[in-house]
């Protein structure tokens, strides 16, 4: 096996609080090839912090330490902000959670997508515009000409998220982090958006980190799964082996998943006593 695309060892994220420093990510390690990795866990388990520390976007007073954080042979941990910036967007990119808040309200959609590309590859306006329209088409937006000139508040949530995907994929990065890309969307468009991500990631042969609290969704779209709880990785397995998971937390999550072919009256509630003692 060749060197992995991303390799992380002992990543820790700490925030100072009035009651002393709190570790929200506690020394996790994992590596990733050009594959699709899912990270699941309940709210507050440190998933987003993990994703953001890969991009070195944890702002002070938050602190990130790691024994190793290597992306494609580049040591991210010691990388200067300037060089890191050249990497962001161009090689590692992130789809944010809610298009309502993560798109700039006073720039048109087209401008924002174009900016992502222009920042790394300056090019004439005409050409830029053509690339933007092409990208909008790739995320299955009809009438890209019209949509490019709209402001974010003028597009629907699902369309906004497709715009976000277009923006993050237009510089053709090698790794895409998608942080709950569909949790702010209507159920009806969730699958559509995920299918687009899936298709583009496969087509470009990129790595994907899909962050979600929905185990079923991650199982469907990923090859491998990390389960996080309380800032730690409690389980790591291939998606198809999920039903063989051993950690009680994972089992609890699995049991709480509704299935099509069942007729339970009540979904079981997570029983925290099984692992909380640790």
């Amino acid at each position: 096996m060749t060197a992995p695309l991303l390799s992380i060892k002992n990543l820790t994220v700490t925030f100072p609080t009035p009651k002393g420093p709190v570790e929200v990510v506690r020394g996790i390690s994992f590596s990733l090839g050009r594959e699709r990795l899912g990270i699941v866990g309940e709210s507050g388990s440190g998933k987003s912090m993990t994703g953001r520390s890969i991009l070195k976007l944890i702002r002070p007073p938050g602190r990130v330490t790691a024994d190793e954080m290597v992306f494609d042979g580049i040591d991210l941990a010691s990388l200067r902000e300037r060089r890191m910036r050249a990497l962001r967007g161009a090689r590692i990119s992130m789809v944010m959670q809610d298009p309502k808040f993560s798109l700039n309200p006073v720039m048109t959609v087209g401008e924002q997508i174009g900016e992502a590309l222009k920042t790394h590859r300056p090019m004439p306006r005409r050409q830029l515009r053509a690339r933007v329209l092409e990208m909008l088409e790739a995320v299955r937006i009809n009438e890209p000409e019209r949509v490019a000139d709209l402001y974010p508040h003028e597009v629907s949530g699902g369309m906004g998220q497709r715009v976000m995907i277009a923006m993050m994929l237009i510089p053709e990065p090698d790794l895409l982090i998608a942080d709950e890309p569909t949790s702010a969307l209507d159920v009806s468009v969730q699958a559509q958006v995920l299918d687009i991500i899936d298709e583009l990631v496969r087509r470009n042969g990129m790595g994907l980190i899909l962050i979600s609290h929905d185990l079923g969704l991650v199982a469907r779209y990923c090859d491998r799964i990390l389960v996080m709880n309380g800032g730690e990785i409690v389980e790591e397995c291939a998606a198809r082996d999920l039903d063989k998971a051993r950690h009680p937390y994972t089992r609890g999550l699995l049991a709480a998943m509704p299935r099509m072919d069942e007729d339970r009256d009540e979904l079981p509630v997570l029983d925290r006593s099984a692992w909380a003692a640790t």
């Binding site: 910036r85 990119s93 944010m96 993560s102 309200p105 720039m107 900016e115």
Partner: peptide
């Protein structure tokens, strides 16, 4: 502290432009 400012940083936009174009402009 807005998400879209983070978005701009994710895209690799230089900090000056993040501040003036994305944070200040609105």
């Amino acid at each position: 502290s807005q998400e879209y400012v983070t978005t701009a940083r994710v895209k690799g936009v230089p900090e000056r432009r993040v501040i003036w174009r994305h944070a200040f402009y609105p």
